[in-house]
Design a protein around this nucleic acid. Structure first.
Lengths: 123, 123
DNA sequence: CGGGATCCAGTAGGATACTG
DNA sequence: CAGTATCCTACTGGATCCCG
């Protein structure tokens, strides 16, 4: 893989924005995190994420499947079982996201303080 | 700072989503990238980002300033000069984002292929 | 030059209700 | 159980005019 490492706006920025736009939507990460340990079925994910509607879960899973982040396996039986699992691509993303997650957790206090200071300073 | 490093859904996920929601919006990253090399003034950033409206640039900069990612310096003169610079917090974020950027660039081809395959497979 | 205020279109996302 | 279809609301983002 001989990929240019530098991200100099022209080529990379649009893509980074696009990726982050998906990853940064309201649910994608939480779904990915829910799948990181093991494959899960639809309502299993729904229970794990908590707060997501079946509508949004469907959309999120479809987007992830489209990108090849998640593999969908249908087992025809009664009741039907559909299992979702992270692919290697999805797993590698989750690893990268984890770093951002740790950054977010590590700096949440400072950010919270900054916001409060900013908000109160302009009453 | 005794912050738990693990991100096990309950505490971290909401924050990660919130951070990524801002970082992943349409312009934040590009603005941060524009400021990574050196401080810039409003229209300088606007020229550098290309495509952004002054409205969205204002909002983006305000959000970044609120979080303490960007410092705003006003130099009262004619014409007035306002300079924006990344703080250390903003710089550290840009470092973390850079990794995600590299991931995005490195996997863009695969993702593009996955999407095409998915889209054509369900014509 | 560096914005603020306003108006407006498009989309993300929530709440059901219905289906195989 | 695992979705699809529909409707509705809120926010995002663009354009434009105005102001210090």
């Amino acid at each position: 893989m001989d990929v240019p490492v530098s991200v100099d706006a022209s080529a990379g920025c649009r893509w980074v924005s696009e990726i982050l736009n998906q990853v940064g939507d309201k649910w994608t990460i939480q779904v990915v995190v829910a799948l990181r340990d093991r494959p899960r079925r639809f309502n299993d994910i729904k229970r794990h994420v908590a707060g997501i509607s079946q509508q949004m879960l469907t959309r999120t899973l479809k987007a992830l499947e489209r990108d090849g982040m998640v593999a969908r396996t249908v087992r025809s039986s009664t009741p039907p079982q559909v299992e979702y699992a992270l692919t290697e691509l999805g797993l590698s993303l989750s690893g990268t996201v984890r770093q951002l997650a740790e950054w977010a957790v590590a700096h949440r206090t400072i950010i919270r303080e900054n916001r409060q200071r900013y908000d109160t300073s302009r009453t």
